[in-house]
């Protein structure tokens, strides 16, 4: 599943970021911002039109991403904590 498909307020974990072209600068930047394997991530809000942009909580930081950016990030659902 990609981050752009993740429903709101469902905790997930980053699996990785895919380059859409060679040396994709947006993918590089996403990794620098902390989208790396194992990081907990969550969508906390959507923009008002077309559910875009997405407000993403990663690490201690909130970033606004467009769908196309979020689609580069693959995630898996976090194991439910007992």
């Amino acid at each position: 599943m990609t981050l752009s498909e993740l429903p709101r307020n469902i905790p997930a974990v980053v699996v990785g970021v895919q380059d859409v072209s060679a040396g994709d600068p947006i993918a590089v930047r996403l990794r620098e911002l902390g989208f790396v394997a194992g990081e907990p991530v969550r969508i906390t809000a959507h923009g008002p039109a077309g559910r875009e942009p997405l407000l993403v909580q990663i690490g201690y930081t909130r970033f606004a991403l467009r769908r196309a950016e979020a689609a580069r990030v693959s995630v898996k659902l976090a194991e439910a904590q007992a």
């Binding site: 930047r29 942009p53 407000l55 909130r62 970033f63 606004a64 991403l65 467009r66 196309a68």
Partner: peptide, 9 residues
């Protein structure tokens, strides 16, 4: 083409 946002709140 694609334009990026990547804005910190």
């Amino acid at each position: 083409s694609e334009h990026s946002l990547l804005l910190e709140l």
